[in-house]
Each structure stands twice: as C-alpha cells, then as structure tokens.
C-alpha cells in the first residue's frame, strides 16, 4: 500500500516533467542543428543581412524577420478590431439568445484547418487583389487578410470571456449615473477587461506569427523587405517550410537557425506578454 503510493508519486513526478522534457529536447535539437550557421555566418550578419541566396552563401534573414512582423501586424489590424467589436457586441448588446448561438458558432469555426484558410485566400483573395489593386496578388495584404480572419475565433472567444467576467455592478453603476450603454462599456467595462483582452490579442498574435501553410499559399514568398502592402513577402516560418526539403549543408543549418530566431522571437513576445498582462492585472 505504502509502496504503491510512493510508486505513483514518483511516476506522476516523471510524467509531470514530460512537457519540460519535450521543450528541452526541442531546444536541444533545433539549436544543435542551427547554431553552426550562426558560427559560420556570424549572428549579426545572419539577422541583419538583407540578401538570402543560399546557393551563393548569402544568408541574411532580415527580409523574413521584417516579413513576419509586417504580416503579423497586418493580421492584428484586421483581426483585432473585428474580433473585439464582435466580442463587445455579443457580450454587451446582443440578446442572450443571439449570443448563445453566435459565440459557439464562432468557437466551432476555430477548428477550420489553416490550409483551408490558405486555399480560400489563394483562390478568392489573391486574384481579387491582383485585379483590383494591381501587383501579383500574392502579397502582404493577402497574408494579413487570411491571418486576420484566422485569428478571429481566438480573439472573439477569449475577449468575450474577459468582458463577461466584468461584474454587472460596474455597468449598472455607470448606467445609474446616467451614462449611455456605450459610455458604460468604454469607461468601465473595457478598462476592467483589459488584461483579458490583451491576453486574447497576444494569443492571436502568437497564432499569426507561427502560422505556416496558409501563409506560404498566399504570401508569394519573395525574399525582399516589403515596401508596400501589395509586395510579396516571406515569413520566417515559410522560409523554413519552403526550403527544408531541398537544403543541404550550410543552407540546411541556416534554416534551422531561422527556426532558432523564430523560437527566440516568440519566447521574447510571450515573456513580454506575460509581464504586460501581469502588470495590467495589478
């Protein structure tokens, strides 16, 4: 009996370490493959170089870093107001019945596979952008739209929960003071729900910056630093997925090094996010 309890405890401790172990293995393997590229190209050279031409040993990923940031920012510009607006409407203005139907509908749609979003973008958005705005159609704009729509479910459902968590007394107090519905939302509900809304935005951002297949399909994947919304663009994730299958030697290491850079950027974003959310909660 005693022994069994002890055994269970040891087992559970080991199991508890599983996610840390996986994380450790991921870091170990990706870094082990990628670090030689830093050594050879030079870390600074690698992240600030503007030319990516592995055949000529030109390995600079600044265009992809810029690409990831621009596309993610674009996705937030599209998805954030739309998602937050939808969440505010559902939580503050819609009838209980409407909210009860729409909220789960949107959450169900979170399950749409990303390749489907990418393909819709490729068949509908890319030609539309080419015909109405010019350029090749594969563009920052197309990627931002596709990713912006992709992050909608996360954005709506997490910020809805945050808004719902604001005690009704807050609203009632404002309304009693003679404010309009929107004033109550603007002055009391939104500030109170801010940490949750921030968390939603951060989750959405993480999803956008990490997305691969959908972006490959619509972004065009040129290795230039985009100067217009109609320029094609390549993100860090697509750089890896595009070329990994064919890369050898230094080229291959440079792709893993791209993975390392992506990993570091995401870790920094997550840490900042955690600090920000914690700061706002106080």
């Amino acid at each position: 009996m005693r022994n069994k309890e002890k055994l269970v405890e040891i087992l559970l401790t080991l199991i508890g370490l599983s996610s840390v172990t996986v994380l450790g293995l991921i870091i170990l393997f990706i870094f082990k493959e990628g670090l030689p590229a830093f050594a050879q190209v030079g870390l600074w050279q690698f992240v600030t170089g503007t030319r990516w031409s592995p055949g000529k040993n030109l390995l600079g990923i600044l265009p992809m870093i810029a690409g990831s940031f621009v596309v993610t920012a674009g996705a937030l510009v599209v998805g954030l107001p739309l998602g937050l607006g939808c969440a505010i409407y559902l939580s503050e203005f819609a009838t209980a019945k409407t909210a009860a139907i729409l909220k789960p509908t949107i959450e169900l749609l979170a399950g749409i596979p990303s390749v489907v979003f990418g393909f819709i973008g490729l068949t509908l958005m890319v030609p539309f952008i080419r015909n109405f705005f010019g350029g090749p159609g594969f563009s920052v704009l197309a990627s931002a739209l596709v990713l912006g729509i992709m992050i909608l479910p996360t954005m709506v459902s997490v910020s809805y929960d945050a808004l719902r968590a604001v005690p009704p007394v807050y609203r009632e107090g404002m309304l009693a003071l003679g404010s309009t519905d929107w004033q109550a939302v603007k002055m009391v509900v939104l500030p109170a729900a801010r940490p949750g809304i921030l968390a939603a935005a951060i989750l959405a951002m993480g999803r956008a910056i990490g997305e691969t297949m959908a972006v490959i399909m619509v972004a065009g994947n040129s290795t230039i630093i985009p100067t217009s919304f109609l320029d094609p663009v390549r993100t860090l994730t697509s750089n890896i997925a595009l070329e990994m299958g064919y890369a050898t030697g230094l080229h291959r290491q440079a792709l893993f090094a791209t993975g390392v850079v992506l990993f570091v950027i995401i870790s920094i974003l997550n840490l900042t996010a955690r600090v920000v959310v914690r700061g706002k909660t106080r």
């Binding site: 990516w52 094609p232 070329e243 064919y246």
Partner: peptide
Amino acid sequence: REEGSGTRTAFDELIMAGSNVAARAIVQD
C-alpha cells in the same frame, strides 16, 4: 521555385548562367 530545389537548380544552371534570380520573384514550393 525555392532555392535548392532540383527544378530551380537546373534552371539556374541551364538559363541563369551565374546571374541571380531577382529577390522580388514570387516563390512557389
């Protein structure tokens, strides 16, 4: 095509003869 792929490598050898494909070119996988 993406750099390193067989099709791209062949195209580089047979047509480009040392010139670079422009960085602006759209790349499909």
